[in-house]
């Protein structure tokens, strides 16, 4: 894991939400032009703890509750960013993107290109993603592929506290628009227990993790599992139990979709020969197909077998047995790996 490469031993552990908030607070102290807008981000501290404690330090002017008018406030964030400020705007659930899609897809993403690079949009759009707690079709999607698809957005998906902080620092300092997609199940919220894993040691000081640097979260020789977000932890759990059966799985955490670190993935597949891609987004026209195609283009010969696991092109159902059926779990990952062996 990347954090092991640091020379100093870090003891202090944070939840993913604390790590995210620490980076935001640091940037806000350093730069008065950084501010945060969203629904229930002030007194509530973010429904998923994304702004916990920030109101006390920065007040209502910089931790701004906004009307339920996503087009207006996300668009206003685009406009303020174009004026040179550095807004962070939050979509409470990524699923609500639809009501503000023009501001995201046609303004935030494209203004830089359409201006021939003369306009920059230093905006971070944070959004809670993911299911596994029976919130049904309008509150459980990840939509990773939807945002990675349109040219002009950098798309970041942390899976640990360490990554969350470094990626957030980089996102706020980047002069381009960044979608920062945090998985609800990883935040360490009291009422939505996280798996073991996202809570990691986190350095006190600020540091940046470059986008497009996938992280090998576990090394292995027999199969490469490429994934992101919550499923990094499910893949690690699967790898653990596969090891008992003598299968050595490497787990690659993409950390960002745009830019995509194809090199790290291809390098791993060249070693293992087998590729399993695991995604919590819909199967078709999405992350799994993109990863497989990218590897095939780079080195078709390296691929002995390919498996992909994703939501099988149905909206996320509510009932527990139905949601469990469509969201890949540890057993599904183990079975997919077995099929490659």
């Amino acid at each position: 894991m990347a954090q092991k490469e640091h020379s100093k031993v870090i003891e202090r552990e944070l939840t993913m939400s604390r790590a995210m908030v620490e980076a935001i607070a640091h940037e806000m102290r350093e730069n008065e032009e950084v501010f945060y807008m969203g629904e229930d981000v002030a007194d509530y501290g973010g429904i998923f703890d994304s702004t916990q404690g920030l109101l006390d330090e920065f007040g209502y002017d910089r931790i701004m509750d906004v009307p339920i008018s996503e087009t207006a406030y996300l668009g206003a964030a685009v406009g303020a960013a174009q004026e040179g400020m550095r807004p962070i705007a939050e979509l409470m659930f990524v699923d609500f993107f639809g009501v503000a899609m023009d501001q995201i897809y046609n303004q935030m993403a494209k203004n830089t290109y359409m201006s021939g690079g003369n306009v920059s949009v230093p905006l971070v759009l944070t959004a809670a993603v993911g299911g596994t707690y029976n919130d049904a079709a309008q509150h459980s999607q990840t939509l990773y592929g939807t945002f990675a698809h349109v040219p002009g957005l950098k798309v970041v998906v942390p899976s640990t506290a360490y990554d969350a902080k470094g990626l957030m620092h980089n996102a706020i300092r980047d002069d381009d628009p960044v979608m920062y997609m945090f998985h609800k199940r990883l935040m360490g919220i009291g009422w939505l227990p996280a798996p073991d894993g996202p809570k990691t040691p986190v350095p006190e000081e600020d540091y940046t993790i470059p986008f497009g640097s996938a992280d090998v979260k576990r090394e292995g020789d027999d199969v490469t599992i490429v994934t992101l977000g919550l499923h990094v932890h499910r893949a690690l759990e699967a790898a653990e139990s596969l090891a008992d059966d003598g299968v050595s799985a490497e787990v690659v955490d993409l950390r960002s979709l745009v830019p995509l670190d194809t090199d790290t993935v291809v390098e791993s597949v060249e070693k293992t020969g087998n590729l399993v891609v695991v995604d919590e987004d819909y199967r078709s026209f999405g992350v799994t197909g993109e990863i497989v195609a990218s590897v095939a283009e780079e080195n078709l010969g390296a691929l002995d077998s390919v498996e992909r696991l994703a939501v099988p092109d149905v909206p996320i159902p509510y009932s527990r047995p139905l949601e469990n059926e469509v969201v890949p779990d540890v057993a599904d990952i183990e079975a997919a790996v077995e099929r490659t062996q």
């Binding site: 699923d95 919130d135 049904a136 079709a137 509150h139 159902p317 509510y318 009932s319 139905l322």
Partner: peptide, 29 residues
């Protein structure tokens, strides 16, 4: 979340549909 629910367990409490009496709801504001 049961099989005989209005939406066979697919919708849940924010997504109830009963076309017989012209009722529907949605979780997006």
């Amino acid at each position: 979340g049961r099989e005989t629910g209005l939406g066979k367990g697919k919708g849940g409490h924010m997504h109830l549909f009963d076309p017989d009496v012209g009722f529907a709801c949605s979780g997006i504001i």
